[in-house]
């Protein structure tokens, strides 16, 4: 591995560093701080009251449910997609690669609209669903589908480079030693990618929690029923309930912050361990 040259300290570098910090404070920390102060304008009691509100609790429950469904589903699907794409060669492999990345490049609004087009009242399957009394759009299934779509790439994309770099050699070695497909996957493939996988799962969870655009299109904004936390924040804000909006927003920001922090901590720990080895 190449060793990068030692960092130089010059007035120019100092200036740039200061600028970077300034930008970080201005665009990241300041808004976050304002979030906190706005939420606490009526004291801690105001925050607690806002969070104990029925609709707010329903929104939190719904968001938790969405995360609880989407993260496991996309972890399993992403894992197998990455496995197939990196360890096997098959026709239209390139196409599948593009498809996996699609949710990253498509606007979330579009990601929501496609479900409305498919399952909405005037959509392709709308009449059939209506006839069988199944609600997809403006109901939980729609919200889940939209979130699943948007969060699909994260696990696959973080795991693939690691799998790619290892090639099929570890799996082939395990096979030659008599391990079956299940053993190979559980004892060799999974452990070798565990850090990347954890990182991908956290990213996926953070996005599932925070997704606004796609969910907004399919949810119908029914307070207490189809509003996730981000949607409920918007409703509160539009209703001039700033304390309520900012309290929930602060909770959301804390959750995301915790996930990002644990990812960073994990990378740092792993970095330290690999140096120690």
């Amino acid at each position: 591995m190449s060793v990068s040259p030692p960092l130089r300290r010059s007035p120019m570098a100092l200036g740039l560093t200061l600028l970077a910090w300034l930008a970080a404070v201005l665009f990241l920390l300041l808004p976050l701080a304002s979030l906190g102060t706005e939420a606490l304008r009526k004291g801690l009691g105001g925050v607690l009251r806002a969070l104990a509100d029925d609709d707010a609790l329903a929104a939190i429950r719904l968001s938790a449910l969405v995360v609880a469904v989407c993260v496991p589903v996309n972890t399993v699907c992403g894992l197998f997609a990455a496995y197939a794409l990196t360890k096997y060669d098959f026709p239209f492999r390139g196409l599948l690669l593009v498809l996996i990345e699609l949710p990253l490049s498509v606007s979330p609004v579009v990601a929501g609209l496609v479900w409305v087009l498919l399952f909405g009242a005037h959509g392709w399957f709308g009449p059939w669903l209506a006839a069988h009394n199944i609600a997809v759009v403006f109901a939980l299934p729609g919200i889940l589908l939209a979130t699943l779509f948007v969060t699909f790439p994260f696990v696959a994309r973080t795991v693939m480079p690691v799998m790619e770099s290892q090639g099929r050699a570890p799996e082939e070695a395990a096979t030659m030693l008599g391990a079956g497909f299940g053993s190979v996957f559980l004892r060799v493939t999974l452990p070798e990618i565990r850090w990347a996988l954890l990182s991908g799962v956290l990213l996926c969870a953070a996005r599932a929690l925070g997704e606004f655009g796609a969910v907004s299109v399919v949810s119908g904004h029914i307070p207490g029923q189809t509003e996730t936390v981000p949607l409920h924040i918007e409703t509160l804000y539009n209703g001039y309930d700033t304390v309520g909006a900012f309290s929930l927003a602060a909770v959301l920001a804390l959750c995301s912050g915790a996930m990002v922090a644990s990812r960073t901590l994990m990378d740092w720990l792993r970095g330290r361990r690999s140096v120690a080895r």
């Binding site: 570890p170 082939e172 395990a174 008599g178 060799v188």
Partner: peptide, 25 residues
């Protein structure tokens, strides 16, 4: 028994675990 060109040892296992793998599975 197959010895691969680039060893293909399991990186998350110790030497002893690597050698034991074929018996453990």
């Amino acid at each position: 028994g197959f010895v691969f060109q680039n060893y293909a040892l399991f990186r998350h296992m110790t030497v002893a675990e690597n050698v034991a793998f074929g018996l453990r599975v």
